[in-house]
């Protein structure tokens, strides 16, 4: 004898969840329908606790008519916080193997897709600066979350996170002191405006938008894990189409291109650091 797979209440919650995603898509054109379910559901449930809403169907009803509520929910649904130089070895590989190759281009274009609150954008800008390439680089930093983009654009982070940033920076082979790049003010630090002078922050969805530029490096780390296979395939295709022939793609340390049709158009540069290169 085997138990029933789910209780009726669980099935009701499944239906409510799908209807909620459909409602968000049709009303606000944000498409979460192909996000990985388990994490998104956890986030929705935690957002409901914070908003004091008991059931997803009640949340849906309120969302359809309350734009401000949707804005608040959107922030709660898409806020993975990153670190400066998260996975230091990835940035060492960029510093030693990838960026020097890109130095041969008259202008360097880099796309940080799903940049969230900007930690990786600043990290890459620091690398470029230390390699003397920042002045002729352009970084496209995109995300679906306008609130996160504003934080990224301000370059302000809590002082409490700086020791971790500094450890990572040093582990990634930083040639200066990270404090050369920020000014401390009370419990926060502000990173130099200079690091963002060559950054274009912009609203872009990997789920619904198209390629907008030709770049030599796409860095999109720990974003694909939030997508299902369908949306992952779409995103990888976008990266492929955005890259110049022989351009580089970096993804998260536990992500892979394995199994995507587009993967055949890439070669592995470093399996360990999940760095790939578009074939010519």
């Amino acid at each position: 004898m085997t138990g029933v797979e789910t209780t009726p209440d669980d099935r009701a919650a499944d239906v409510e969840f799908e209807l909620l995603l459909e409602a968000i898509w049709r009303r606000y054109s944000y498409d979460f329908r192909h996000y990985a379910r388990a994490s998104l559901r956890r986030r929705v449930t935690s957002a409901m606790r914070r908003l004091g809403v008991e059931r997803m169907s009640l949340l849906q009803e309120a969302l359809l008519r309350d734009v401000d509520l949707f804005t608040r929910l959107l922030t709660m649904l898409s806020v993975p916080v990153s670190d400066f130089f998260r996975d230091p070895a990835y940035f060492t590989a960029l510093r030693q193997d990838v960026l020097p190759m890109l130095a041969t281009y008259p202008s360097l274009k880099i796309w940080v897709a799903g940049c969230s609150t900007g930690e990786e954008v600043h990290s890459i800008a620091i690398l470029l600066d230390e390699l003397g390439l920042l002045d002729r680089a352009l970084i496209y930093a995109t995300d679906i979350n306008p609130e996160a983009l504003r934080t990224a654009e301000a370059g302000v982070y809590p002082q409490a996170r700086v020791p971790g940033f500094t450890r990572n920076y040093q582990a990634a082979g930083g040639t200066r002191s990270l404090s050369d790049y920020y000014t401390a003010a009370y419990d926060r630090v502000v990173f130099d405006r200079r690091l963002r002078a060559r950054v274009a922050f912009s609203d872009h969805s990997l789920a619904t938008d198209a390629v907008f530029a030709e770049v030599q490096l796409v860095s999109c780390r720990n974003v694909l894990i939030y997508f299902d296979r369908v949306l992952q395939a779409r995103a990888v295709q976008l990266f492929h189409d955005a890259l110049v022939p022989r351009g580089f793609l970096g993804i998260g340390s536990r992500e892979s291109l394995h199994g995507f049709a587009t993967a055949r158009s890439f070669e592995v540069v470093s399996r360990e650091q999940r760095l790939y290169r578009r074939l010519a």
Binding site: A36, R37, A38, S39, R42, P80, V81, S82, I225
Partner: peptide, 21 residues
């Protein structure tokens, strides 16, 4: 579970990772 990632089980019998807080 890999260090520094949450590990979750999806409805379709696959594993999922997240870097949520």
């Amino acid at each position: 579970a890999p260090p520094d990632y949450h590990l979750l089980i999806e409805h379709d019998g696959t594993l999922a990772l997240s870097v949520d807080e």
